[in-house]
């Protein structure tokens, strides 16, 4: 697995969009707090489109915008 990791393209977390303020602890990414789920989806979509990035929906409801 070690070789594979070394050859895999680097992922970069560009943004995290959450509904819970206490989940934002820090980091270099853009962290945004949405009011409701609709807004959360909309913000995520807009960032992903602008940055030409991919979206990961985490099981706890947060959205990550990441770029390969």
């Amino acid at each position: 697995m070690g070789r594979e990791i070394s050859q895999r393209p680097n992922y970069q977390v560009l943004a995290i969009v959450t509904l819970q303020k206490d989940r934002i602890l820090g980091g270099s990414q853009l962290s945004l707090l949405a009011n409701d789920e609709e807004q959360q989806k909309r913000i995520t979509q807009d960032i992903a489109k602008a940055m030409k990035a991919d979206v990961v929906k985490m099981k706890d409801g947060d959205y990550l915008v990441i770029r390969v």
Binding site: K41, T44, Q45, A48, D54, V55, V56, K57, Y63, L64, I66
Partner: peptide, 21 residues
């Protein structure tokens, strides 16, 4: 399934976070 992609029951990726994807 949600944002996760499976092929023949094999987990492939969870990069399909947006509804469009």
């Amino acid at each position: 399934k949600g944002s996760e992609l499976f092929v023949d029951g094999i987990y492939v990726s969870n990069l399909l976070g947006s509804e469009n994807a």
